[in-house]
Design a protein around this nucleic acid. Structure first.
Length: 273
DNA sequence: CCAGCCCCCTGTCGGC
DNA sequence: TGCCGACAGGGGGCTG
């Protein structure tokens, strides 16, 4: 559920607390959350300073003296800093904690246990090859056009593919397609130049709107300060099955595309190919 | 290369 | 009220 806007909001919220701090210890109660194994990870992070905090795709990336500590929130991950005796909302699902040199701790809460903490030499060692960052200047409509030519699959599935484009997930894919009036089952390489140009704008628009509202708290996502994001209040299709399309009034439908719940307006988003 | 499916997990919700 | 199955979904892995 945390996608680019949610992960970026978490990074922005934690940067002031984490950059310049040193990792002193680690506690965990779920081995599978950690890569590599807990003993090795714990030993290697001790005494390492956090030099920067940023985002690549849906990963939170901390650059250390030697290597990178990366966290993927997957569906239910929350990351926040607290004093050891401080009680927070997500505490009952905390599976990893890092002790900091200012006496506080970085907590990773994750009820579903899908989230992961990685220590690696490079970002690429964890992510493999990733597509472009949609909000960077280098991601132009021409780049999108060129990349789409290779995909003879449903456009919704292509947008979810992180090797195609980094950071878009189920929510913002639905929102971007609705804004561009493109049916989620349209074959990617049959989109017209006009449609691709529109989609380029709406991908960025949907992500930027999400970022401006500090992410979508449909259920699990919280900002590092524990409060909810507000992006869900501006959604036009996601989680709005049966409600009227804000453009034409037709009820929003929900179907499954590449095993994902997919929301769209059958009137505004026609299947023509 | 690609589509389809399973798996990892557990909280939440609808149906009976 | 309680029980149970379905569902939510990012991403890795496997098969056909």
């Amino acid at each position: 559920m945390p996608e680019l806007p949610e992960v970026e909001t978490v990074v922005r919220g934690l940067r002031g607390d984490l950059v310049g701090r040193t990792l002193q210890s680690m506690w965990h109660d779920w081995d599978n959350t950690l890569r590599p194994n807990p003993a090795e990870l714990s030993a290697r992070i001790q005494g390492q300073k956090i030099h920067s905090l940023h985002r690549r795709a849906k990963y939170i990336v901390m650059t250390l003296d030697d290597g990178v500590l990366m966290i993927h929130l997957k569906m239910t991950g929350r990351l926040y800093v607290a004093k050891p005796d401080e009680v927070s909302d997500g505490d009952r699902w905390v599976h990893v904690k890092f002790g900091l040199d200012d006496g506080r701790e970085l907590r990773f809460s994750d009820s579903r246990k899908f989230g992961r903490v990685y220590l690696a030499d490079t970002v690429e060692a964890v992510t493999g090859s990733l597509g472009p960052e949609p909000l960077e200047d280098a991601f132009t409509a021409d780049v999108l056009h060129e990349r789409l030519k290779k995909y003879k699959r449903a456009i919704k599935g292509v947008l979810l593919d992180q090797t195609f484009l980094a950071g878009v997930g189920n929510i913002y894919a639905d929102e971007a397609l609705h804004r561009a009036q493109i049916h989620p089952l349209r074959t990617a390489n049959t989109l017209t130049s006009e449609e691709i140009s529109a989609l380029h704008g709406t991908i960025r628009g949907a992500l930027n709107d999400g970022l401006m509202r500090e992410g979508a708290s449909i259920n699990w996502y919280r900002k590092p300060d524990g409060t909810q994001g507000q992006a869900q209040t501006a959604f036009t299709v996601y989680d709005r099955e049966g409600k009227p399309c804000q453009t034409c009034g037709h009820p929003i439908e929900k179907i499954r595309v590449v095993q994902r719940g997919t929301h769209f307006c059958p009137h505004c988003q026609r299947l023509t190919d």
